[in-house]
Design a protein around this nucleic acid. Structure first.
Lengths: 396, 396
DNA sequence: CCGCCTTTGTCCTGTGAGTGGAGAAAGATT
DNA sequence: AATCTTTCTCCACTCACAGGACAAAGGCGG
């Protein structure tokens, strides 16, 4: 099947495509209300989009009191692939052009196996999704990796937790395999874009998106655009010092936030607590599973285990301390908390909120919502689809 | 005398005005090289600018191997007023349209006297400069105040150190008095704009500008534009916690950076040291002057006083700790240190650098210059002139 | 000093983007 | 059935802009 080849020829067409992506099928008249073009000009551009096949007619709209308008929508056969590579698992999803998730697969995996092994997994998951009839091919793919990325080239740079990925041409390689355009970004940035597109951060221009998973990272959105920093490492807050002379960290320093609270740190603390006999609940889980993860702590906390609740609260406080500093500095309109340990939920959120509101100045926190992300596992893949669609729906 | 009334009619004219502002007088041909317009179009726009009187002919340019081109420049009688209100002094300067400082006055003063008293001072200083024949009137004014500003309206909001200024219509009032357009911003943001326009930050897109004066603030520049945050309080880093359970701060918390290091904190520490007999140098200065300020500490340190050097080093370390966190988060291409205590100079800078390079990840610090601002007292007023010129040199 | 090349400035025409109005088409309202 | 709304199409007109022809002004070698 022939895939999307056309791109919008000008800014007007790009604008229209994004309106159709974000607002779904729409009548010509409604589009006219949103774009500030004369009717004649609009008709010309819409006709050209129809010619390219990016957009198709979709019946008649309901009347608004007069002649009914014609509906148009993005081509229903367009498909984007969203890939979210985490430290310990990978998510792959297929979306339509409106970025609705049509199918989603998740598989445990270790990034440290290296890019080749991981790519095999990703491609096999993509093939599995395709086999269900959801897609006949991909018009574009977005992919997130858990480390800094040189964005224009789509290449990871010096990623601490993914040895073997440094300099690997992710974009180039995946594009080759899939035969479609690919964009690469940091996983946290994609989560931020996901929540911005379809989650809690709709209509917020400046916000922070804290992702707490195996590590801790922060997506920064300035004026609706992801800010990546000079070398692509912006938002790397896991190694901000949270505790002076605190625990040694893999990075060589002491007291890094990530050493005190993250999925990995939480598992370690829980193991320690179980071994020391501080928590019967955790000890029994350790025995059953032969190991402990953040998920066990979440479950134990939900069952009322005091030790687990304390661990979560203390972690939330540490995280809150760091976030308080960022809030003073950045003055965001919203802070989103997401990532794997979101299962820790409201206990964590409450601890973070308490600390931030206590430590930041009222002017910055006065009207500052701190909320959990609402897309869960979908945030990353939706963000990935959004990334590539933004690229493809821009003038060439 | 008639003042500037015209504004650029379109983006091309705005572009040309800014080129002439930033690059000085220029030939039509050279402008053509920079703007990617056809010669005919360029000629039309330049002619229109000449008609408005914003730019004037300025003789013939040197030959580049053929017919000599005509020079043009911004009208030489255009004047901007730059005002930088600090906590303890006020700077007023007059610039031409190229933002060169033609005259500069500085006067000690206390913001806490309130807006009315301060405005009187500012207007009298402006009048004094005018009286020297530097200007016959002002085409625009920029003004910086030491606290958060609701930027679009030009009104201070909840400024901690300037009671009485909250909600005072600075923009409106000054515009009325001077009879010209006025823009208001935080003093730190203006310092950042100054260093960006004429100082160390030329050609850097993303950078931080730390101003250490009576308090501590940080100007944030993203993609060449000042970032002000959701409520205009971005960069307010003085109350980030630097020392857990540290000194009580005026804001009600403990351990704020500003409570441990700033002009005010340094003076307090020096006084304490002098009284306790820890430093003969400081004690003698105390006796002579009847009080101590950051300037005394700088002088004592320059004279080799160990206690003063220690105070500066410790302050630099604290500041460096906070900056390290910001660097990890923001990944800037440059960090500029400026403000009143820049007299502390390289001792301070060395301590900050040491701490930042020790605590941040190599990817963020790898190629990160940390330097002193090079404009000193001029940074704020140049930034102020830049602010209003950016406004006036944009299409209405 | 003279011819020739280069650069700059001016004039003019062609093109394509875009606007706005007239009127037709299609439906709602009474 | 008559009238009002809304939508769509068509067309003429304006405007921004490019690009070429040509003139003006200078440099340079003989």
């Amino acid at each position: 099947m022939r895939r999307m080849t056309a791109r919008p020829a000008n800014a007007h067409q790009a604008r229209l495509l994004k309106l159709l992506r974000d607002g779904g099928p729409n009548s010509r008249a409604q589009l006219g209300d949103q774009v500030d073009l004369s009717r004649s000009k609009l008709a010309v551009e819409v006709d050209r989009l129809l010619e390219t096949g990016l957009v198709v007619a979709d019946g008649l709209a309901a009347s608004r009191g007069g002649r009914r308008s014609h509906n148009i929508r993005l081509a229903p056969n367009l498909r984007f692939l969203g890939v979210d590579i985490g430290a310990t698992s990978v998510d792959v999803a297929i979306t339509n052009a409106e970025l609705e998730v049509l199918g989603h697969l998740n598989q445990p995996m270790d990034v440290r196996e290296g890019p080749v092994a991981v790519f095999e997994q990703v491609l096999s998951l993509a093939a599995k999704l395709k086999a269900t009839g959801l897609a006949e091919g991909f018009d574009g793919a977005g992919i997130g990796v858990p480390g800094p990325v040189r964005f224009p080239e789509g290449v990871p740079v010096a990623p601490p937790i993914m040895p073997g990925w440094d300099g690997f041409p992710v974009r180039e390689a995946l594009s080759q395999e899939l035969g479609c355009p690919v964009m690469v970004d940091n996983d946290v940035n994609l989560m931020a874009m996901g929540e911005q597109h379809a989650g809690v951060a709709r209509s917020v221009g400046d916000f922070l998106c804290i992702k707490i998973g195996t590590g801790i990272g922060c997506g920064i959105v300035v004026g609706g655009e992801v800010y990546r920093g000079t070398t692509g490492s912006a938002g790397d807050i896991g190694h901000i010092q949270a505790v002076p002379d605190g625990r040694p960290c893999a990075c060589g320093n002491r007291g890094c936030l990530e050493a005190h609270f993250s999925g990995a740190a939480l598992a370690r603390d829980a193991l320690e607590a179980a071994r020391q006999g501080l928590s019967a609940e955790l000890a029994s889980r350790l025995e059953t599973n032969g190991g402990l993860t953040a998920v066990d702590v979440a479950a134990a906390a939900a069952a009322g285990d005091a030790t687990s609740l304390d661990l979560i609260r203390e972690g939330g406080t540490r995280t809150g301390q760091v976030i308080a500093g960022l809030v003073s500095f950045f003055n965001p309109g919203l802070v989103v908390i997401g990532g794997g340990v979101t299962g820790l939920g409201h206990t964590l959120l409450a601890a973070i909120r308490t600390q931030v509101y206590r430590q930041s100045l009222p002017l910055a926190t006065g009207n500052l919502p701190i909320v959990l992300g609402e897309l869960g596992q979908n945030a990353g893949v939706i963000g990935a689809a959004r990334l590539i669609s933004d690229h493809l729906f821009s003038p060439a």
